[in-house]
Structures are given as C-alpha cells and as structure tokens.
C-alpha cells in the first residue's frame, strides 16, 4: 500500500513547483497533513511571488524560479513563441501569442527578472534556450492556474 507521504513525494516529483493548495486538492488531504509530510520529505520548498512551491531535490535556484513562472500558461506561451521564432519585438511577440500588449508587459517583467527573457536591440530573446526548453517540458499548470491566466487574458483584451 502506498503511504500518504509516498503519494505526496510522487506528486512533487511529477509536478515540480507544485503549490500546497494543489497537493491538498489533488490528493484529497487536509492542509495540515500535507504540511506535516512536506517537512519530513526530501523536497525543497521555495517562496516564489508570495507562494511556497515545492520541488524535488536537484533543481538549482534559477531552475526553481523558472519553473514557478513557466507553470503559468501565458508565460509558457510567450517563452515557447520566442524559443521557436525569437528574437521578436514586443508587439510581434504579443501578436504571435495572441495576447494584449498589457498582458505581455506584465509577464515580461517577471520573466526578465527570472532570466527567462532578455531584450537585445529592442527585440525579445530567451537567453538560455536549452535549459529553458527543458524546463518548459516539465512545467504543467493546474486547472485553477489556467483559469486565472485565461481570465487575465480576457480582461486585458477587453480593457486594452
């Protein structure tokens, strides 16, 4: 029989950067129970943008910050477009991704801060394409994260 602790460990391994709320919801456990096991597991808790994300061991701080961001659908879309077709201007990038300029501008600041995006001669590029592409493969947003992301896309589109 799989213990609760093993289930939590397996979930963190399969979904690096997962948040406590998602563990509670997906595994149908109490928040206190999840916190208790997380403290005793060989996982790394990292505070990113006001929320603690959990990672299996072996990710360095750059990778942890990158994964937390790439779990956001829109951020991942921006990085994917730039990996395929970059360098692109901000306007071209927003058009390719299909988002409002204000949506791109909000994500751009955070992506640049994490080293996932840089500006060269007025065009956006992914400074570390190989590492970033590998992390993009691993990041998988949860349904509530997707909903919030799509809501902001919609509102930015309507208000822009």
């Amino acid at each position: 029989m799989t213990s609760t602790r093993d289930r939590i460990a397996a979930r963190v391994r399969s979904d690096p950067g997962i948040h406590v709320n998602a563990l509670v919801r997906d595994l149908d456990l109490a928040p206190g129970q999840v916190q208790y096991h997380l403290r005793r597991l060989d996982v790394v808790g990292d505070e990113q943008f006001g929320r603690t994300h959990y990672y299996p061991p072996g990710y360095d701080p750059w990778e942890r910050a990158a994964l937390a961001l790439l779990r956001r659908e829109t951020a991942a879309d921006i990085v994917a477009v730039l990996l395929d077709d970059g360098p692109l201007t901000a306007t071209e990038t927003a058009a390719r991704v299909g988002i409002a300029d204000s949506t791109l501008s909000w994500h751009r600041g955070r992506l640049a801060e994490a080293g996932l995006l840089a500006s060269e001669d007025g065009r956006l590029v992914v400074p570390e394409p190989e590492r970033t592409a590998a992390l993009l493969d691993r990041a998988d947003p949860s349904i509530p994260e997707r909903l919030v992301d799509r809501f902001t896309r919609l509102v930015d589109d309507l208000l822009d």
Partner: peptide, 18 residues
C-alpha cells in the same frame, strides 16, 4: 474567486473594478 486571484496578481484599479 478567479477574479480575486487575478486581482491579487495585478493589483490594479481596473482589475479591482472588474
């Protein structure tokens, strides 16, 4: 709930009003 989560991220007046 979704709107509140978005508002927490953006912290802007338009998002507050929406």
């Amino acid at each position: 709930a979704v709107a509140l989560a978005a508002l927490l991220q953006r912290r802007s007046v338009p998002y507050l009003l929406v």
